[in-house]
Design a protein around this nucleic acid. Structure first.
Lengths: 306, 306
DNA sequence: AAATGCTTTTCATATCTATAAAATGCATTT
DNA sequence: AAATGCATTTTATAGATATGAAAAGCATTT
């Protein structure tokens, strides 16, 4: 046990950042984009740390990462500020997902496509993806958090049901129930700022800019449904919508087919109409539209188009 | 590394059974009670194992435990059968909960009563309850499974909000939405067997037999709501009701006050009326009663009385 | 007062081996 | 055909240490 000064604890430029720092960097960038933040704006580490529920250390690392990537630049007399226009940046190519995140998605795809069985043991996964038990645990815990897997009583884990027609029908039913009720809840309160962000995302998509892949559409879609649910001021409603989104994400991971652009555009229109009705205070009408929207989507397999 | 014969892998009578085996034994006993199973009935290990989702090994251990406790006896020419009348048996005193289970409840109580903060680290819990890190993880994972705690991005865990008036109101709102919708779902299918079990439990409670503590009432109550939700044939509805029950269990763990017997009796009546309406096929009426039932309960603090 | 940059402290992960327990297989019985 | 009892294999937990990362404190700057 020696007491020599240890190496500098902060991340050295060029060394590998932690998974958390990478993910934070991606989230911060995405958030700045959705806010349409402009070059020159300074960023507050404590503020962002609070917003994302972490301490200053990893957030400092995340901003350094963005600095190295050229998104931010040192500000005078200190701190960091936005270095350039963010609208054109594609988050995924500038800051690839962390290895852990990539693995997570890979496993999800493998499960969705049937390459992984519904029930599986940790030791089965270790050699398969060449990872340690700890990593397996971390990944499975994340699946568990998102309601996509459960630990079985004795040994092993079990992925959630999905894909099959029955589960899909039940999913649409519960979404219809909860989302429509959220719209007509007495505690409903429309949040214009959030609505504006949702609208902007839809319009960008509708106008057919670059990078409209399935993932992008899925995210816009999920944000719409989650956002509307959040207007009900009921955290459980939001939780339910979020979990349903996760489930659908898993189902969709299987379908690699390109999405029918026409359907996407129509869904966008429907979303915007619902948003308009909600903003105008005509919540019964918004709920009716939502019911129809979800009902219409349910008719089309595979899930993911709504 | 030697190759001498290892000790017998099956549990030796008198040695400590595993947590899983204890919990299985308790569940099997409870299930036999609710079925009003009679002395002399033989038990099938493979059948029970399948029913509870485990392999034969732990189920064999669980039945041996019940044998040692005098609930079962060896049958001719082999196997085990019920040894005596089960109606009078109090599960908790005959087969105390496993140490892990006891710890789980203790932590829940401590959290509910404010002895534990909402945010907490694993290392804080280790010395506090004198347990290893592994045990802490297992317990926290269970809290997480039941929606009562979440891992935070960086370090530490965070228990779910509860108790405060706002969360309670949101909880009642979502229950009203989901449970009433479940009753009027087009896929609703009444299950007479399950209903009979629920009825029996209520009647036992109403007639004021021995051992009517808060826990017993809570369980009957939870089974009622979960059972009715299950008639909707929608697994997500059941999941939601279950999670809400877990939340309320946590909230209730704080309130040690004795329950007002009059309120319990009234709730029983309301439950039975809802069940009757559902059985008679008058589901709109059942939903109306349910709405009123949940609304009435919401007026009374603390939660737990419904 | 609030943010920054750095330091110190606390916390959790990685990795290993030993061991306990659950899952599975199989011959045998009914 | 299905259940039992026993044997074997597979799977996960326990315990302990080294190490890396996040949280928290503090002086300094604006």
């Amino acid at each position: 046990m020696n007491h020599e000064p240890r190496p500098h604890p902060r991340r050295i430029a060029g060394s590998e950042p932690s998974d958390l720092q990478r993910e934070l960097a991606r989230k911060v960038l995405a958030r700045l984009q959705s806010e349409c933040a402009a070059a020159g704006q300074r960023l507050s580490v404590p503020g962002l740390a609070r917003e994302f529920g972490v301490s200053r250390s990893p957030m400092t690392g995340a901003l350094n990462l963005l600095n190295e990537a050229g998104v931010l630049r040192p500000a005078e007399p200190r701190g960091l500020e936005i270095a350039r226009d963010l609208a054109e940046i594609d988050v995924d190519s500038l800051l690839p997902a962390s290895p852990l995140e990539a693995l997570y998605r890979r496993i999800m795809r493998d499960r969705a496509s049937g390459k992984l069985p519904q029930e599986i043991s940790e030791t089965e996964l270790m050699p398969r993806y060449d990872i340690s038990r700890g990593t397996v645990r971390k990944l499975l815990m994340r699946f568990s958090d998102e309601g996509l897997a459960k630990r079985q009583p004795g040994h092993g884990w079990r992925f959630a049901d999905m894909l099959d027609a029955e589960t899909t029908a039940e999913s649409y039913e519960i979404r219809q129930i909860v989302e429509c009720a959220a719209l007509t809840s007495p505690r409903f309160r429309f949040d214009p700022d959030r609505a504006a962000i949702i609208r902007r995302a839809h319009e960008r998509l509708r106008s057919g800019g670059a990078g409209i892949d399935g993932d992008a559409w899925f995210q816009v879609n999920a944000d719409f449904h989650e956002g509307l649910a959040s207007f009900s001021q009921n955290r459980f409603a939001v939780e339910i919508v979020r979990q349903q989104n996760n489930l659908r994400r898993m189902g969709e991971a299987a379908a690699f087919e390109d999405l029918p652009m026409e359907r996407v555009r129509q869904s966008c229109e429907e979303h915007l109409a619902i948003l308009d009705a909600a903003e105008a205070g005509d919540r019964e009408w918004a709920a009716a539209l939502m019911r129809r929207h979800l009902h219409g989507s349910a008719m089309f397999q595979p899930p993911g188009i709504d």
